[in-house]
Every structure is written in structure tokens, then in C-alpha cells.
């Protein structure tokens, strides 16, 4: 398994080299503009002067989605190791995890009831 881990790390490194070499190649091959125009470095806003700041506070519904995601992602993190040993644990294991999921789904039902996931 040590070889597999090494192979995985090397694979990521190779993909990093491939991706960055494309950017470097573009840096070497690109055509440089003879006349510099500051206008082309202006933020694109359909040709108008950019209006107001971009980095603003955004709608709380994104925050709600992030919160619900954290809960369900944690659940997935608990379920993944369990999914490997379902056979050994037998019915007792299934029931125990089902109870855990059921408690979680109560929270989900509350969120649905409160229209938290409705994106209004």
C-alpha cells in the first residue's frame, strides 16, 4: 500500500507540472501588445465604468446552505467508515446508524418546515 500512496502523491505532482507548464508555455509564446492600453485592464462590466465595490456582504441564504452542508458532510464522514464494515457489524450496526441518521433527519425536517432550504 505504501507504493500506492507514493504513486498517488507522484500523480498529483505530475498533474501540477502539466497544468503549470501550460501556463508557462503561454507566458513564453504569448503575443505582446505593441501599444499598452490601461482600458483593457479595467474590470469588465459590459463596457460601462465599474460601479460600486464588488466585495460586499452577501445574502444569508448562502450561510444557511453552508451550515446544513456541514451537518450532512459530517454525517457522510461518519457513514463512510461504517460502510466498509457493514457485513461484520450485522443488523445491530445497521439499526444503530439508522437511529443516528433518523435524529439527523429530524433536524432536516425542521429545516424544511422552516423553509430554510427554500432559497427565498
Amino acid at each position: 500500500m505504501a507504493t500506492a500512496s507514493l504513486a498517488a502523491i507522484v500523480f498529483v505532482l505530475i498533474s501540477a507540472v502539466v497544468a503549470s507548464s501550460l501556463v508557462v508555455a503561454a507566458k513564453l509564446l504569448r503575443v505582446r501588445a505593441k501599444v499598452d492600453s490601461p482600458l483593457k485592464r479595467r474590470t469588465y462590466e459590459c463596457g460601462e465604468e465599474p460601479l460600486g465595490p464588488t466585495w460586499i456582504q452577501f445574502h444569508p441564504r448562502y450561510y444557511v446552505v453552508a451550515l446544513v452542508f456541514v451537518i450532512f458532510d459530517l454525517e457522510a464522514a461518519f457513514l463512510l467508515p461504517w460502510s466498509l464494515i457493514v457485513r461484520e457489524l450485522g443488523m445491530a450496526g445497521v439499526i444503530e446508524v439508522a437511529v443516528f441518521a433518523l435524529i439527523l433527519m429530524l433536524g432536516w425536517a425542521y429545516a424544511v418546515k422552516k423553509d430554510a432550504l427554500k432559497w427565498q
Binding site: A19, A26, R30, R32, T43
Partner: peptide, 22 residues
């Protein structure tokens, strides 16, 4: 695509802007 001029918008955060596509 390799020949195209590479424009960094003046308002952008350069480091993050360049790192994201890679």
C-alpha cells in the same frame, strides 16, 4: 489560446487570480 495576451485586471487579487486556474 497559447498565443493570446494574458491580461491581469487592475482591480484583481493577482496571486489568487493566477493560482485558481492551475
Amino acid at each position: 489560446l497559447l498565443q493570446k495576451e494574458d491580461i491581469l485586471p487592475e482591480a484583481a487579487d493577482g496571486a489568487l487570480f493566477n493560482l485558481a486556474p492551475i
